[in-house]
Design a binder for these strands. Structure first.
Lengths: 282, 282
DNA sequence: GAGTGGTCTAGACCACTAT
DNA sequence: TAGTGGTCTAGACCACTCC
């Protein structure tokens, strides 16, 4: 259908948006204006914004229009809302930087935490501690052996529906939720953990000492999508805000899969970095 | 209304959402119901949904409430809206799967396209052709040599503000925009491309033959954020919809950086896969 | 011309927070 | 008790599409 003259730079169809000389809607104007004030630091981190009703009056619009603008800023993670209190500026430092599963520090003079994302009370805990924040690891369910459902059976490559160790937890820093982690482990390897005290020994380091299995390889599948109502509740984010949904599979040097996890993180709080080699030349 | 006697399972801050026996808002109920009909296939791909006004009548709510529900589905990419026409179901097959920069086919009997993302009219073109769709590569600006700004100078690791080859294009399939790509290349290596016809020879294959430089390594930084008004216009997505913003640096086997690109893709249309090794054990 | 989504208005009631 | 965000209502006008 009409793909003939796709050379050169296009005809119409796409410019109706930026066309009319800054002819933004009223809500968009508020987004630009308030957003710029935040980015320029005129509204400082943690500071409170005018209420919806005040903003409506300031810009001479209805409350719903002011509210729409705030929702736009909200879904971008630039601000946060608290019912009964107001809207507040979110600090840029709150965004996590993750590279190959390792959390990175904003100041490079700090040594990066190693891939202890993969451990009990993992790198998230240490990362936040080093940043002077107060991390928490809240188990939403008590770790337990459960029957693997079809999905878990498949991802852990189990032969039949065996028992697996399930952990389901929420990680927070300074009471602010960062991510939900639902993880599964083969029970023959990890089952005894239910009655073992690890303290802060890395989970996979324990695995290596106890069973001679070395965690070696990670596979991640990553999409961004709007949070559902349950995730919004747990992560304390607003309708329209997005999450990064990650499925992570960890295998040992033998090839055996030793963990499958579903991680759901506030998209506004995350940056990912990946490196890889190109190998089409061989 | 009548929400007085919901003091069932109050307490602790986090359960106010999933608590009360399907006590969702009216908009949320519409999201669930319509969303399920789509996922169950009762509303088939490409099919048209009831209009906002019809939906409002069906669910006995105001138009704004019905509209809010549709916006929620919209921002998740489950449906798409076209002013003057209506809302339509988006096919699941339209989501791209990318792994280490390579696009993957949903049916595994199709061989994956190699990392020709990195080439002229690259893998996107071939990928979509194989899927029987109609790809386009629209240059929003004519490729040209431009003075590198500070950002480009830094990322390409240029010593001074040199000239660089800039390409800025939009990739579409069946008229549907998938991603914006703004890419920069050192002019001493790529400048002659302005007067050279590559046809479909991969850009980096040409580089290897012409200059003996092999593209070897890729670094990607990836975040999800709401599309700004310009991106919404170009990518034809709605307010609240998110994009995956990717900064990609490609270096040659010598370590020299040969491309820096900023890729902005509809988040609803993308799945990413990454693999990497864990190396904390050495 | 009829119907559509996009935007906006001026109200309203609710549960919640702070004091 | 006063103020806040969350939700909803019943209108309205606009630019656009389809016929």
């Amino acid at each position: 259908m009409m793909s003939d003259d796709q050379l050169e730079n296009r005809e119409v169809d796409y410019d109706q948006f930026e066309s009319g000389d800054g002819e933004l809607g009223k809500a968009e104007r508020i987004v630009e204006e308030v957003g710029n004030e935040i980015r320029e630091g005129k509204l400082k981190e943690g500071g409170r914004l005018p209420s919806e009703r005040e903003l409506a009056e300031m810009f001479r619009v209805s409350r719903m229009t002011a509210r729409n603008a705030l929702q736009t800023l909200l879904s971008g993670g630039l601000i946060a809302s608290y019912p009964g209190r107001g809207y507040f500026v979110v600090g840029d430092h709150e965004r996590l930087q993750e590279r190959h599963g390792e959390l990175l520090y904003p100041d490079s003079d700090m040594p990066p935490v190693k891939a202890e994302e993969l451990i009990k009370a993992g790198s998230f805990y240490e990362y936040m501690m080093r940043l002077g924040r107060n991390p928490e690891d809240v188990f939403l369910e008590t770790p337990a052996l459960v029957a693997a459902n079809e999905e878990v059976t498949e991802h852990l490559e189990l032969s039949t529906r065996e028992l697996v160790l399930k952990r389901y937890r929420l990680q927070l820093a300074d009471k602010k939720p960062y991510r939900l982690i639902e993880s599964y482990y083969p029970s023959d390897l990890f089952g005894e953990l239910l009655t073992t005290k690890l303290d802060k020994k890395p989970l996979f380091l324990w695995l290596q000492e106890r069973h001679g299995l070395t965690a070696a390889h990670v596979n991640e599948i990553l999409i961004a999508r709007p949070a559902n109502i349950y995730e919004r509740g747990q992560l304390r984010i607003s309708p329209g805000a997005h999450v990064m949904a990650i499925e992570r599979t960890v295998s040992a040097h033998t090839g055996r899969i030793i963990e499958w996890a579903r991680i759901t993180a506030s998209a506004a709080l995350y940056t990912f970095m990946y490196e890889y080699d190109i190998n089409i030349w061989k």
